[in-house]
Design a protein around this nucleic acid. Structure first.
Lengths: 332, 332
DNA sequence: TTCTATAATGACTACGTATTCACAATAAAC
DNA sequence: GTTTATTGTGAATACGTAGTCATTATAGAA
């Protein structure tokens, strides 16, 4: 690999001049610029960004710590973030980490000297928050939030839970199950709380057996459905806290021979693309906003990275709305 | 940020010793090790991987240049690759690039000094191949292949095209449309050739109007479907060259009121998870293999990166098989 | 005792770049 | 003709680390 020194030698100039040609050619004689560029071409020279990063103490890179891509919600946000970052001259290191409190991922990220971090996988009381704050690296959370606040964009999860429950209640369902992930995460916590509040507000009992915390995998969701089917006090409707899980429910119930929504109503959340498919037609909850959620996060992160001085806080809670399709219907 | 020099100072040793503690503690007095580690802890020291990379001329990073994640096929491969790489101590820079011949992405990747590259987005006659070869960085292609061969893993696309066409022919369809992406890519090229061969072998004419090269987006697929519907010689079955496109067709036709497979049979390819969903039940083509395709690619890349000497070639063509579900049926 | 091997450590350098400083040559101002 | 900017350039340095080399102290062999 040719270095700027090699280029300097073949162009008959100093390494400093080569560097200047690269960074601010206006500072060097046009003739010299041409010579240097010719030398670069002939040597097939490519600046070493590692060396540049070391010198500048900026890597022009960010870390994205996201949930598993088998949840299509994270596919969208990942694409949004990676593309926008690239467009702004940053490259993205993608890490998949759903557990939340896994220190090793954060250690790794900080060693990489990234200029900023975006994370979705944080728990409400995650100790990682302190670590990140102490590191001095700007970071933004999306989807999930932390009790400490910080910079984040989320959906009003409690409101979402209320919307879902009220929709099902209005259809005549009173036995409504809730299937979600661990309530360490603010998303599931909020969606559960909202559901409970709506039930309570309309004087409907919530049987604790109806509430299923899973690890969001298909196997785990199926287990939850199985156990619901065994109940005496069997629910007639399900609020699945993500579309990914709602799809698992729908598929599993249909494969067992149940009809949706005649036997069970199902409401999801996230409005991922496939839910609009004619063969799926999932009732779900989305948020109305001009920009996709990932964009809010990355835009603000880049703002923070580039205007270090005036760190403007972002605490954004998007408002959810209900999209009624065909997986929910009146109770029979 | 504390450096190894700072650690050295507070521990009362030289920077060399700190480095040794990090890389091979057996070379230093256990008592000193303890002191140094204490100093590291108290300063919250984290080794700077950028500096290490510069010194070692290895970044322990790879680049993955993949197709758009809205095609779920690439979601699977991306996860496989990123996870395995991480497990082997490499981190992954993910780039989305569908165009193929976009030089700038490759320039960017090479400047990053990655130790290896995995790419799916290469065209059969892509000039980028020469560039990559010249760079000396090991690289592996998956899904698509290049005319020059090199290291790759693919599916036998021609065979896949034959399987799909024969399946539809056997059901009595003779007017079979083909919807795919640009045939610059070996995948689409092969799937089209196979389709044509199967038709020819059974003495069925192929109307050129049945063949639709799209840019694989939903809008483009809908346009293709629209133009098929306007034909006098209207097809009764569609072979969509990826499941992603097959889903677009299925959705669009159903939304227009057509029944699948009564009005149109649809066969996809890739066997992405959602095709098995009870509401979709897409007939598709997969490949049988012990390992997912992405794993072949990353395993071989890591082999190449670590055993520089004996570069074993990998030219792997997986055999496709047909999975019959409910989107294909006898011609009416 | 004297010589040799081993263990433990520090000083120093290089990786490839950006940048500061110094200096020369030229152009502009007086 | 002298002074003052301005332009163009090179030498030298630092970023944080790994590793080479040299040095000292100690233990074992003769």
């Amino acid at each position: 690999m040719a270095s700027s020194k090699d280029v300097a030698k073949t162009a008959g100039v100093s390494q400093s001049t080569v560097s200047r040609v690269l960074n601010d050619p206006s500072k060097v004689n046009p003739e010299t610029v041409a010579n240097v560029q010719k030398a670069m071409k002939s040597l097939n020279y490519r600046p070493n960004l590692i060396a540049r990063s070391l010198k500048q103490r900026k890597t022009k890179s960010i870390a994205l710590i996201t949930g598993h891509l088998h949840n299509p919600f994270f596919v969208d946000t990942t694409m949004e973030i990676v593309e926008y970052a690239k467009q702004q001259g940053y490259h993205t290191l993608v890490y998949f980490e759903d557990q939340g409190d896994n220190l090793s991922v954060y250690e790794e990220v900080l060693k990489q000297q990234v200029d900023g971090i975006i994370l979705s996988s944080i728990f409400f009381e995650d100790p990682i928050y302190k670590e990140l704050e102490a590191s001095g690296v700007p970071f933004v959370m999306f989807n999930r939030r932390h009790q400490a606040g910080g910079n984040f964009v989320e959906t009003d999860n409690e409101k979402a839970g209320i919307l879902a429950a009220n929709h099902l209640l209005k259809l005549g369902h009173t036995k409504i199950a809730w299937i979600g992930g661990r309530t360490f995460a603010s998303t599931f916590q909020g969606r559960l709380e909202g559901y409970k509040k709506a039930m309570q507000a309309t004087n409907h009992q919530v049987d604790p057996e109806w509430i299923k915390e899973t690890d969001t995998t298909e196997a785990s969701v199926r287990e939850a459905v199985d156990s619901l089917l065994l109940l005496d006090n069997k629910p007639t409707a399900i609020f699945a806290a993500t579309d990914s899980m709602a799809l698992f429910c729908q598929n599993y119930l249909m494969k067992m021979g149940y009809t949706i929504p005649d036997n069970f109503s199902i409401c999801g959340m996230d409005n991922i693309d496939i839910t609009a498919h004619a063969g799926i037609q999932m009732t779900t909850i989305t948020h109305e906003s001009k920009k996709p959620m990932g964009l809010y996060a990355i835009e603000h992160l880049i703002y923070m990275m580039e205007e270090e001085k005036q760190i403007k806080e972002m605490a954004l809670t998007l408002q959810p709305t209900l999209i009624i399709r065909n997986t929910t219907g009146p109770k029979r």
